[in-house]
Amino acid sequence: MLRLIRARLAMLVIVLFGVSIITFLMAHVLPGDPTTALAGPHPSQETLNSIRAQFGLDKPLPAQYLSYLSDLFHGDLGTSIRSQQPVTHEMLAFFPATLELVLVAFIVAIAFGIPLGVLAAVKKNSFSDYIIRFFAVGGVSVPLFWGGLVMILIFYAKLGWLPSSGRLDIELNSPESVTGFYTIDTLIAGDKEAFINVLKHLVMPALALGYVQLAFIVRQVRSSMLDALSQDYYLTGRANGLGKRFLVVRYALRNALIPSITIIGLSFGSLLGGAVVTETVFDWPGMGKYVTDSILGRDFPAIMGFTVVIALAYVIINLLVDLLVYSLDPQTRK
């Protein structure tokens, strides 16, 4: 176990090193130079030079990279062009909102995705299998922003049941920040009205984002389950008269989970990417909304800061997933 963690941490360092090179290249070498964005139309050579000097862009590339790397190492993601604030601070402020949204979406996806995938596999080629498969292929095909749009049209514009934007009604005060999760913070504050309001705001974004993930999980679980159900040990279990429910859960699902979890972990990336779109659509004040605003404002340090943070988060999640799979599979455990 320790050896695996050590090997994976070494990998992580190499990968993060590579990540820093890529973001550096994107920010400093590719044609969309931030200076032009900053200087406005028709800048004088002087203005350009002074901006270059201010951002250290006049130095040779390797020197620029080293100072970029050293900044990253100290947790400094640069200064936002729009707000002139450190990107790290802004990112930290937006992080809990994104995490709350992503986690709720993920829980929804797991809670419904695994049972639906199991059901579809056990009842293969039945009517319910077809319905579930159709529902799942829809989920991986629907553009997230359009899914959100349809939901807003129905539940906000037509029925007026749910709010279409933000985390909380403006009239209500945000809860005192303990965890940064409004659901938990409102509970801690004992503000029932705010809690319900927060939940109402969460429903649409979490469902829109969760549906895509759910569809993915259903497809993966169904296919690993079909594989497990056709294995010899499942037949042995049946021939030994074990109960259907026990067989499906402890024989098939238990083994199907090992490949499924690896793939579901990888798909967490699409959840993080999807959060960008979802937050834009539902005006959710998280990192995703922050980055799309930065794109419109040509705020390169913010965009690249976001990219680095998301890559870091994704790499860490995959490490955790590996450890989880490791602990589930007796063959690697011993």
């Binding site: 590579g18 990540v19 960008v276 965009i303 990219t307």
Partner: peptide, 24 residues
Amino acid sequence: MRSTDVLLAFPTLVLALALSAALG
């Protein structure tokens, strides 16, 4: 292979977003 590891360290959409932002 290590460079594919690095590319795969980014969620697809986020990398596409950063790249097209950088490329214009």
